[in-house]
Design a protein around this nucleic acid. Sequence first.
DNA 1: CCATTCGTTCTACGGTCGTTCAATCAACGA
DNA 2: TCGTTGATTGAACGACCGTAGAACGAATGG
Lengths: 197, 197
Amino acid sequence: MTDPTARPTRAQQRRRTEEGILAAARRMFADLGYERTTIRAVARAAGVDAGLVMHYFGSKDALFSRAAELPAGEAPGEVAGSTPGEVAEAMLSALGARLEAEPAASLAVLRSMLTNADAAERYRAAGEPLLDRISASIPTSDAGLRAGLLGAIVHGVIIERYLLRFGRLADASPEEIVDLLRPCFLLLAGAQASPNS
Amino acid sequence: MTDPTARPTRAQQRRRTEEGILAAARRMFADLGYERTTIRAVARAAGVDAGLVMHYFGSKDALFSRAAELPAGEAPGEVAGSTPGEVAEAMLSALGARLEAEPAASLAVLRSMLTNADAAERYRAAGEPLLDRISASIPTSDAGLRAGLLGAIVHGVIIERYLLRFGRLADASPEEIVDLLRPCFLLLAGAQASPNS
DNA sequence: CCATTCGTTCTACGGTCGTTCAATCAACGA
DNA sequence: TCGTTGATTGAACGACCGTAGAACGAATGG
């Protein structure tokens, strides 16, 4: 159907341009945060005029919203499982996946969440159902707090690895990090302490 | 010597004004981050003109540097001790103190570190000697990574409690949090797992 | 008492930002 | 073929920013 030699149709070209802008926006929001990325700079990086960005996305806020959408299937790992041990393992494997390669959209939210209310709310909304499910699987009465601590640990590690790029965490392999955190997660999830190898 | 009824001398007044500006700056940097706080807004909050802020501090960067200085004695807790157990306990009590009341200067750095290079460097420089000492007290070969993880956990918890104000962590008492984290810290520091009570 | 310091305010400049809008011109549908 | 749509540009506006520097006036010191 689509002839690769043919000049792209107008709709194709439009979609291509729009995605180019989104990709540039994601990169800049992730690198610089919301306030320091400018529409003009995004447009320049995408090779278009700033007015076009406005025309397609309406406002800087709306552009951020679109850039912060997680690509389908990149939703935070489905932490299923009912026993504390299963919950801990599911969170660890989700963490491991994020340590391999965190998507730019997610980094844009993380980079901006401390200075932009929209990003903070997006971060909260993304994590809440996850934490609720984890909390429900923890048998103790302080399950909510334990789930909150698990989330804080995950995000503390990701922030230092990807946004601050601290050597100790940035250089380590995901397996190393996950293995060190495993007993902690098991303890916080309410499972028995694992024997130290 | 200082007569309380007397009108303040010029030097006193100057110091008072300067500290008022610094207090307002600390509050705003902590609440809004570096980019969103403006010199004009700091001046307004302190009840003075923006030009005066420039005159006293020279530039916005310099103002941030002064506002980010920790008040004497608020330096990150001296994590002394040589055994893994002592290190973990020292970190926990330092964390407990910070969970009681984190100083505004420290929050200003934390709030800004993801978008401001100065703040990020200040954060790194403040934590590094601490992490080095912790690392030296951990007997395993991956001591550096373990120390980095401990630091990431501490800051993840503080960020979610003070900057994002997530209910689960914001409402909990410092003792609760510290007690839940204790076995994790002991494990990461290389001590034996504590029996779960 | 007078000259001087200096805390403080006012005004203004150059720059950048988000945003708007008219203009252009190639692709499209009838 | 021709009118229309729509992708794209360029110039401009108003607001706000960090910063500079002149001006004022009260405290200060001789």
